[in-house]
Computed example of a mutant assay.
Amino acid sequence: MTEIRSLAEADIPVVAKLFQKIFRKSDKEPSAELIAYLQRLYIRFAGETVPASKVLLDKNGNVSGFLGVNYFDYFCEATNKTLRTAIVSTLMVEDHQHNPLGGVKLMRSLQKDGYDLMITETASEVAAAIWKKLDAVQLTNYSLDWLRIIRPLSFMTEIAGSKLKPLAMLQPFARKFDDRKRNAMHGKSLRWSATPSDWPTAQQLTCTDIDATEFAELYQHYAQSFSCRPQWNTEQLLNRLEDAVQKPEYGKAYMVKAGTKSGKNLGLFLYHLESGKTARVLEFFSDPKAASQMIDTLIHHAASNGAVAIRGRTQPDLMEAMLGKRIAFTHLCSTMVWAQDPALLPPFVEGKALLNGLAGEFWNRLYANPL
């Protein structure tokens, strides 16, 4: 007979070993860094006084499954209520094929903890099926990844080099070829395979590097445009940013605000980039009237820092502005939401809720670092 209980600090080394086995396909002992980070993320994270995560115990009392949870408040204007929200970031069950109901049991247990909302940003096909059994909704417009190729030959070399390391040696030659092609392109020419070096609309805004404090202030400003949004205190938001920038596997973190030369702010973005590789966007906000120009600015900023391509997660309010930008869309994992009261779902279904990024899971270090 299986049992489910709340995560205890003593469970962390076992959970780390399970994480290593299931997600990293490795029987090696988990690193001290991974154990320490799981303690920080699921036991002592800012503003979370009680661990919300769950463990599944087998008939012998051993940990055989885990549900990683962080929580915060969402404010919804339609109901003028603050909603207690669980962000589910890690769902794993050992020997899932012989225990197919383990994940469902963990999720049903979380349902009973009194949350108004449960959200995930990274549901695989298997996890999405579990969420749907609980009457959760799959949010299509939040569940796509977008990709814009900047240096095509370098992009292909990056992909090939990740599979066969000797091919990475071709990167300098690919870079020279791509830059020659970009320099030869007309400034207003947009192709699926590249962006021009001289791109007038992408250079009209002034970009300024900012620190975490200013980024947090601007984040809260832009969050006000969403009818359903996280209601974080400063400590919670800065703790997420602290983790978000520490992704050396993705490269340097760029926190940037963009605006007119007269000083009017029109948006901000946060992405990671190791020069010569693909930039990964975590957050992107824009004044609605400047969305098209801000997207161009983001792509050009990454290109200027050596990106071969740039990718990110879709936001419904930006989808229209992305059309015509030679951006490709694909589905890798799903954003799901479950509500205790179905009347709370419309802002999420209609794309009026602030989700993904810092209000999701990809900010935490488990989604980049080989801790």
Rank of each mutant, 00 (worst) to 15 (best):
N239Y: 10
F19Y: 12
A307E: 03
I327G: 03
I35G: 07
M255E: 09
V63F: 07
K133W: 11
W146S: 06
D135E: 13
V14K: 08
N369I: 09
V308A: 10
L41E: 12
K289Q: 11
T297V: 09
V69M: 04
L358F: 13
P13Y: 13
G306D: 06
R40K: 14
M92R: 02
E283D: 01
V337M: 03
L147P: 10
L190P: 05
M336D: 01
M255Q: 07
I159D: 11
T234L: 13
L238Q: 10
Q246I: 15
G351L: 10
P248I: 04
F66N: 07
L282R: 01
A32Y: 05
G324H: 06
N233L: 06
L371P: 01
W338L: 00
R191H: 06
A86S: 05
T206D: 14
I130W: 02
V104Y: 11
A129F: 10
M294L: 12
W363V: 02
R182V: 10
F45A: 04
P370F: 13
S197L: 15
M1E: 09
K132I: 12
A343S: 04
F19L: 11
L237A: 01
L164V: 14
M118Q: 02
I35W: 00
L332C: 15
L345W: 03
A244Y: 03
D341Q: 02
S64M: 14
A174W: 11
W146A: 01
